[in-house]
Computed example of a mutant assay.
Amino acid sequence: MRRRRGARAAAVLLALALGAGPLLLPAAAAVPAGATVWGYSEGLAQCELDGKWGFVDAGRNVVIPLRYDSVVSFQLGIAAVNLNGKLGVIRQDGKYLIQPEYDTLMPIDCGLYLAQKGAGWGVVSILPLSDGKGGSTNVLYDLVYASVRVDEQGGTNVLTLTDTEGAVTKIPVYDLPSILAQRGAASAQFPLTRGKLPAFSDVSPRDWHALWVDIAYNVGLVSGVGGGRFAPGQTLTVAEAIQLAATVESRYRGDSFHEETASGAKWYTPAVDYCLANGILKAETAARTDYNRPITRREAAELFAATSLAKSLPELNDRNRVRTSVPDVHPGERGAEAVYALYAKGILSGVDGGMTFSPGGTFTRAEAAAIVSRMARAEQRIVLWGR
Rank of each mutant, 00 (worst) to 15 (best):
A300N: 07
G34K: 09
L114I: 14
K311W: 01
L83M: 12
D273G: 01
L281Q: 06
R387E: 15
F190Q: 02
Q153K: 15
V322K: 03
M355P: 00
D93A: 12
A265M: 12
A146R: 13
T169P: 03
G134C: 02
F304V: 12
L236Q: 15
V124W: 00
S256R: 15
R229L: 15
E165T: 13
I242E: 05
V37P: 03
S312N: 11
R3D: 13
R321W: 08
V213N: 05
D103W: 03
H258R: 15
T285Y: 14
V238G: 00
R288I: 11
P198Q: 09
Y274F: 12
G360T: 10
P331L: 10
D142C: 01
A336F: 13
V173Y: 05
L221W: 06
P198G: 03
V339R: 08
A378E: 07
G353C: 04
V144G: 02
V150W: 07
W385P: 05
G19R: 11
L221H: 09
A167W: 06
E284C: 03
F230K: 04
G254H: 10
N157H: 13
A15N: 12
V37Y: 10
D207F: 06
D352E: 08
H258I: 12
L112H: 02
R5C: 00
G335Y: 08
T324Y: 06
R2W: 10
D175M: 14
L112T: 08
G154D: 13
V89P: 02
Q92T: 08
G59P: 00
K282Q: 14
V173C: 13
T156R: 15
A305V: 11
L143Q: 13
I90G: 01
G54M: 02
F190W: 08
I242W: 06
A336K: 10
F363I: 09
P232H: 08
R297H: 11
T137L: 05
T169G: 03
L348D: 04
Q182D: 15
G34W: 04
G184T: 03
V329A: 06
I90D: 00
S204P: 02
R297P: 12
V62K: 01
T169S: 15
A241I: 08
T164R: 14
A188P: 02
I78C: 10
R229I: 05
G43P: 00
A45S: 01
V124H: 04
D175V: 01
P314F: 04
G195F: 14
Y145T: 04
A181E: 05
L24H: 13
I280F: 10
K117P: 03
A344C: 09
W267G: 12
F304L: 14
G155N: 04
G354Y: 09
S256H: 12
E48M: 07
D131L: 04
Y340D: 10
E302A: 11
F357E: 06
T296W: 11
Q153R: 14
I78G: 04
D207I: 10
S73F: 03
T235M: 13
F200Y: 15
N84F: 01
T164A: 13
G335R: 06
R183E: 01
Q46M: 07
